[in-house]
Design a protein around this nucleic acid. Structure first.
Length: 104
DNA sequence: TCTTTGACCCCTT
DNA sequence: CAAGGGGCCAAAG
């Protein structure tokens, strides 16, 4: 992990390392970078999303495993559909972190 | 230029 | 055990 760069770079790198069919929580990312309370910035990092298509924002969910509301890729249901296609059981915009929660 | 909000989480009382 | 408040960095108004 390159902590030499800013937190954003770390967040992007971690999200990129998330394999297909797996989901990550903001808390895990924030904790991975070194500051558990940086979840807000994690969301901002994905908001700017400098590398669309490379950074799987749809695999990033909140602490409760619930999909974010403002992800706005082009449709809220879009994220649930993508996750389902990858093999993640999406129930009511929620996923099972016990099964699909990816750990670094 | 300064203030407030924002895809959130953790810790204390 | 449960509820509330505080904190982090950055961008937009």
């Amino acid at each position: 992990m390159d902590f030499s760069k800013n937190y954003f770079e770390n967040v992007y790198d971690l999200v990129k390392k998330v394999p297909k069919g797996r989901v990550v929580t903001y808390g895990e990312i924030a904790r991975a970078v070194g500051n558990p309370r940086m979840g807000r910035q994690v969301g901002w990092a994905l908001h700017v999303n400098p590398e669309p298509g490379v950074i799987p924002c749809h695999r990033v969910v909140n602490r409760f495993g619930e999909l974010s509301s403002a992800f706005a890729f082009g449709g809220v249901n879009r994220q649930a559909e993508l996750l389902s296609e990858e093999g993640v059981e999406v129930i009511d915009n929620k996923v099972d972190l016990d099964k699909y929660g990816y750990k670094f």
